[in-house]
Computed example of a mutant assay.
Amino acid sequence: MHRTNLTAATADESWGGLGPELAPATEPGLRPEVADGNRMVLVQGPDVVFSAEVDDDRCGVEYLRTDRYRSPVAPLRAAEARAVGGQGQPSWYARWAHRFAGALEASPIGPLHEGRWVLSRRLVEEGTPRTGDGPAGRWRSRLLDDHPDGYVDWFTGSWGVMPLRRMPPPDDGRVKSYRKQAREGVLPPVLLWWFSGLNCYVILDGHARLAAAVAEDLEPTVLTLSRAPSEERARAGTDRALSTYHLTMSVLDGPHPLTDRRAPAGAASRLLATQLHDVEVGHAPTRAWQMPAARRTGPGTPRA
Rank of each mutant, 00 (worst) to 15 (best):
H2N: 14
A8F: 04
A11N: 11
E13C: 05
E13L: 14
G16F: 00
G16L: 03
L18P: 05
P24V: 11
L30R: 01
E33G: 02
D36E: 13
M40L: 15
L42C: 09
V43D: 00
Q44F: 04
V48W: 02
S51H: 07
S51A: 15
S51T: 05
A52D: 03
D56I: 03
D57S: 08
T66E: 14
T66W: 09
D67Y: 06
R68Q: 09
V73Y: 06
P75Y: 06
L76N: 00
A78S: 14
R82Q: 13
G86P: 01
P90W: 05
S91F: 03
W92P: 08
R99H: 15
F100Q: 01
F100D: 05
L112M: 13
E114G: 15
G115M: 11
R121E: 15
T128H: 06
T131I: 02
R138A: 14
H147W: 15
P148H: 10
D149F: 08
Y151L: 03
V152C: 06
D153L: 09
S158T: 14
S158C: 13
G160K: 04
G160S: 07
M162G: 06
M167D: 06
K176G: 05
Y178N: 08
K180N: 08
G185Y: 02
V186P: 01
V186Q: 00
L191W: 09
L191Y: 08
L192N: 08
L192P: 12
L192V: 10
W193C: 12
W194P: 06
F195Q: 14
S196I: 09
L198G: 07
N199H: 13
N199A: 10
C200G: 01
C200Y: 01
Y201H: 15
L204M: 10
H207G: 06
R209L: 10
A213W: 12
V214A: 06
D217A: 03
L218C: 00
E219W: 15
P220V: 11
L223G: 02
A228M: 08
P229F: 04
S230F: 01
R235A: 15
R235F: 01
A236C: 00
G237Q: 07
G237Y: 07
R240K: 11
A241Q: 05
L242D: 05
S243W: 07
L247P: 00
M249G: 00
V251H: 08
L252P: 05
D253K: 08
D253M: 08
G254I: 05
H256S: 10
L258M: 12
T259P: 00
D260G: 03
R261I: 07
R262M: 09
A263H: 09
G266Y: 02
G266N: 12
A268S: 12
L271G: 09
A273V: 00
Q275C: 07
D278H: 07
V279D: 01
E280D: 14
E280C: 02
E280H: 00
V281H: 01
T286L: 14
W289D: 13
Q290G: 07
P292A: 09
A294H: 11
P299L: 10
P299E: 13
P302W: 14
